[in-house]
Deep mutational scan, measured.
Amino acid sequence: MPVRRGHVAPQNTFLDTIIRKFEGQSRKFIIANARVENCAVIYCNDGFCELCGYSRAEVMQRPCTCDFLHGPRTQRRAAAQIAQALLGAEERKVEIAFYRKDGSCFLCLVDVVPVKNEDGAVIMFILNFEVVMEKDMVGSPAHDTNHRGPPTSWLAPGRAKTFRLKLPALLALTARESSVRSGGAGGAGAPGAVVVDVDLTPAAPSSESLALDEVTAMDNHVAGLGPAEERRALVGPGSPPRSAPGQLPSPRAHSLNPDASGSSCSLARTRSRESCASVRRASSADDIEAMRAGVLPPPPRHASTGAMHPLRSGLLNSTSDSDLVRYRTISKIPQITLNFVDLKGDPFLASPTSDREIIAPKIKERTHNVTEKVTQVLSLGADVLPEYKLQAPRIHRWTILHYSPFKAVWDWLILLLVIYTAVFTPYSAAFLLKETEEGPPATECGYACQPLAVVDLIVDIMFIVDILINFRTTYVNANEEVVSHPGRIAVHYFKGWFLIDMVAAIPFDLLI
Results as ranks from 00 to 15, higher is better:
R5N: 10
E95R: 13
T13A: 07
K116V: 13
E130N: 14
A175S: 14
A142S: 11
F68V: 01
T201A: 10
I18Q: 06
L296S: 05
Y43K: 01
S255R: 14
F22N: 07
K332W: 01
R73S: 14
H254C: 07
S318E: 13
K373H: 01
V325G: 14
H147L: 11
V222G: 08
Q247E: 15
G184E: 06
V132P: 15
P240Q: 07
I96M: 14
A203E: 15
A307P: 12
E58I: 01
A79G: 05
I96G: 01
N117Q: 13
P202D: 14
R35H: 15
N12W: 10
D144P: 14
M308R: 07
R77F: 09
K101T: 01
A382L: 05
R20I: 01
L380K: 04
T367A: 13
A57N: 13
P168Q: 10
F22H: 13
G187R: 06
L200Y: 15
L385T: 11
E274N: 04
I333E: 14
I96Y: 01
S179H: 10
V295K: 11
F125W: 10
Q11D: 13
L167A: 15
A185G: 14
G294R: 05
A350N: 08
M60F: 08
T74M: 01
A382V: 06
A268G: 11
G246A: 15
T371L: 10
D342N: 07
Q25E: 14
K373G: 04
D259L: 08
P63R: 08
K166S: 15
A211N: 15
A293L: 09
F22V: 07
D199M: 01
S331T: 14
S351G: 08
L155S: 06
I336T: 15
R100P: 01
N369I: 11
L51A: 03
K344R: 05
D67V: 07
L378K: 04
V377A: 05
N220G: 08
Q61R: 13
R73F: 03
D355T: 14
D321C: 15
W154T: 11
D286N: 05
P227W: 05
V41L: 04
N128Q: 15
I18W: 10
K362H: 14
D111Y: 06
G184R: 11
P114S: 01
D119G: 06
P227M: 13
L248E: 12
S182Y: 15
R159H: 08
G381A: 14
E365P: 14
N339C: 02
S209K: 05
R20M: 07
R5P: 05
G47I: 01
V295A: 14
K93D: 09
L343I: 10
T270V: 13
G120S: 07
A172D: 14
G381Q: 07
R280N: 05
H143R: 14
C105S: 14
C276M: 07
V194N: 03
T145V: 15
T375C: 11
R148N: 14
C105K: 05
G186M: 05
G183K: 11
A156T: 15
A83M: 13
S313P: 11
G187S: 15
F348R: 14
T319S: 09
M137S: 14
S283K: 03
G236D: 15
P240I: 08
Y54T: 01
N369Y: 05
I288M: 10
G120M: 15
L311V: 12
